[in-house]
Design a protein around this nucleic acid. Sequence first.
DNA 1: GTCTATATCTGGATAGAC
DNA 2: GTCTATCCAGATATAGAC
Lengths: 216, 216
Amino acid sequence: MNTLAADRAGSRSRVGREHAATIVRAAEAVFARHGFQGATMAEIAERAGLPKANLHYYFRTKQAVYRAVLDDILATWLVGTEALVPEADPAQALSAYIRHKMRLSAERPDASRVFANELIHGAAQLREVLRSDLRALVREKAAVIDGWIAAGRMAPVDSTHLFFTIWAATQTYADFEPQVCAVLGVERLRARDLDRATEHVLNLVLRGCGLVAHGP
Amino acid sequence: MNTLAADRAGSRSRVGREHAATIVRAAEAVFARHGFQGATMAEIAERAGLPKANLHYYFRTKQAVYRAVLDDILATWLVGTEALVPEADPAQALSAYIRHKMRLSAERPDASRVFANELIHGAAQLREVLRSDLRALVREKAAVIDGWIAAGRMAPVDSTHLFFTIWAATQTYADFEPQVCAVLGVERLRARDLDRATEHVLNLVLRGCGLVAHGP
DNA sequence: GTCTATATCTGGATAGAC
DNA sequence: GTCTATCCAGATATAGAC
């Protein structure tokens, strides 16, 4: 994990690693709520149940905490495409991937928000890893989809842009939750709302890829 | 417009209104780049070509500048659904709406980013207007789509969630541009990239709604 | 209406006792 | 390793001359 967060957090005793992990979890919530500049070390410390100066023992700067949070999120974000292999059934593979992404939005909305926030403001910290790791991943998996299209197993769609659409359609339920809630007229998204959202995205994307019964 | 920004900016001489507008334009760019807390009055002033104290003459606080920016964006965001009327052709109407949204992402990316940033961090300023105006708008237009579905003119999709997907799929090219660029391997999105994006979103959504030739 | 100079405050970071 | 007290930079906001 620690390509970015090369702080004290790495080489540490058991309790030390636990404290560092506690700080990162607390920081994720605070960065999600307020952004990088809006987040304060005091609030992170309070949420972590540690005195403020203690944070500066584990992470020298606020930047270092932020990088550790992004690092932790990236490790989660760059997995989940295992189903997308040439020999798989396109409908099943894409369904599995979409469900996986929706589950992430449901279970780690703060992670999604921190990631989104970083992208919106220029991705200064992530630019390089996106250009290397994410680009390589998408190229590989887009090739799989192109293979399915060439074999006539699904409709012709732009395989690379399909990833952008799937990411956007699923993460919108985490990133822009207040908008979704406002339109749906609910206080917060519940499991049933997210189930309905999952069914919708699956239906639209699979049909969009020519992978479900034709309509109307 | 000015339900939120009831500052000096409203009741003003010609040059006064022009200065206020200049400040709002500059502020949009700065808030888009740095978020609310990260934006500084000094940078907004510099970009507007005005001394810092002048900003405080037109807008008493940074909050007031921010609200004026959001206000301006909302006026743009809540229009564009005119094509979605019962008597229209579903494919043409949805195409027009998607193209409109893609054009906004291309032409006002900073507006999209400020809006997205506000949503990500809880929509404290926008909550009420989303619950009233946006909700009403979507209810009305979702009913139009439901009518088309009931008439067998398009495939059964969740009309409300369809809006979430269209917003997400189009705005991702503004909000998350660094991610798109990284994956595509380009420095920044050009007209041809956005044309391709538009074709992709149109193709996927229209096919997803059962509105284009069946495939594969 | 415009702008310089400045008051005031917040918050990241550290010194140094324990 | 932990924590209190404190330093100091940076940013909002204002006072007051022009």
